[in-house]
Simulated assay, not measured.
Amino acid sequence: MIYSRILGTGGYLPERVVTNADLEAFVDTTDAWIRERTGIERRHLVVDGETCCDLAERAARRALEAAGVSAQEVDLIIVATTTPDQYFPSTATILQRRLDIHGCPAFDVQAVCAGFVYALTIADKFVRTGSARRVLVVGAETFSRLLNWEDRGTCVLFGDGAGAVVLGAADEPGIIATSLHADGAYKEMLQVPGGIGNGDYANNRVTMKGNEVFRFAVMVLSKLVAETLAANDLTMADIDWFIPHQANLRIIQAITRKIRLPMERVVVTVADHANTSAASVPLALDQAVRDGRIQRGHLVLMEAIGGGFTWGSALVRY
């Protein structure tokens, strides 16, 4: 039987750093308020001319190097993004061109902040069915371009970045299980109202009902942890590391209290880059791998939730 496992990880954050103190100059907020309400200290933002694919390429190359896999060995590319470079072609095909890869499938996945977990699930299915042997999975966002920089309830929360993994065929499970969910009934809670289909080009900025999103995220992500563990006959004691979506420290803390997990086993990177949407989970994974916390053989539970709502988990033996 064929399984998939993570061969290598990579991440990239834009060079431009915007601290909470920097935001105080043009947003009605304070460093103390942002830290207390979100745990965020800084975010990395793209500059004019810097694209989503620029970030994706840097993260992808680092993941390929870590995996010891050449670009020409890749036979599937999936990019999770809400902020593609163009309406079409997909950012995945633009990345494919950058990496000088030709002929293999390449496509984008749009599930907002849950996009990487969705993409990882799809990649795992391709490998398990024998349709691919080396898959490049990237979560990349230039989310700052969707923000209203006069809305302190949203603009302080997000940043830009990219994270990537290379999946490879294996004899033993690496991606043990994934679980995906969505419910469009809640779309008004977190969305960009405008779009091509509805012809509303003016309303192209993020809107969010913050308190409702907070409550919903804690509820469904806590339930998702229990669901994932039960489906695999595990308890939290079996999990070496928990990587939640890096949206808000208070959400992370509320979830860990519900699932009775000490923060010492939780990977938290939100202070350094804010919510980078689909890049959030792979960036946290890459940091924990590179700083030595996550070792080969560790059992890692990842989960994320995105506007729509979409949410999902991945149970991985690294």
Rank of each mutant, 00 (worst) to 15 (best):
Q72P: 06
D160Y: 00
T129L: 13
Y318I: 12
G184W: 02
A164Y: 05
Q96I: 04
T276S: 09
F158G: 05
F242S: 01
E36Y: 03
A140Y: 06
M302V: 09
I239V: 15
V220W: 02
I196M: 11
L180W: 10
A66E: 12
D151L: 11
D272H: 12
G68W: 01
A32W: 06
D286A: 15
A66M: 13
P84E: 07
N211W: 05
A226E: 15
G11W: 10
G195T: 01
T9L: 12
D160T: 04
V46R: 00
R215T: 13
N148G: 07
L234P: 09
G194K: 13
V316D: 02
T82W: 00
N203Y: 07
G194L: 13
A237K: 15
F107W: 10
G130P: 12
R62I: 03
A185M: 11
P89Q: 07
C52D: 04
G195H: 00
E50H: 10
M236T: 15
L157S: 07
V127P: 07
R16D: 10
G195N: 02
F158P: 04
D286P: 06
N203D: 13
V289F: 14
L299C: 11
L261W: 05
A92V: 11
C155E: 04
G312I: 09
A169N: 11
L136A: 04
A271P: 03
L190K: 08
A162E: 05
N148R: 11
I2T: 14
W241I: 07
N148P: 06
R317V: 04
I40T: 05
D31K: 13
A271T: 02
I175V: 15
C52N: 14
A63H: 02
A59H: 02
Q86E: 15
V220N: 03
P244Q: 06
M1F: 12
T82G: 02
R265I: 06
E264N: 14
V220I: 12
W33I: 14
N148W: 06
G292H: 12
D272Y: 09
V135I: 11
M263D: 06
E50G: 08
V27N: 09
A114T: 08
T81H: 03
P244K: 05
D291W: 07
A177P: 10
A185S: 15
A66K: 12
D31G: 09
V74N: 06
H273M: 11
F309W: 05
T121D: 14
T228N: 13
C53S: 15
M208I: 03
P84H: 06
V316F: 08
A170W: 11
I255S: 08
K187G: 06
F158T: 08
A63Y: 00
P105L: 08
V135L: 05
L285H: 01
E24D: 13
G307R: 10
L95I: 01
S179I: 08
A25N: 14
E212Q: 13
N275R: 06
C52H: 01
L64R: 10
C104P: 09
T276Q: 05
V47R: 15
F242G: 00
A60V: 01
R205M: 14
G197E: 14
F216H: 12
M263G: 00
A185D: 11
T276V: 07
D233E: 15
E212F: 02
V138L: 03
V109M: 03
A56R: 03
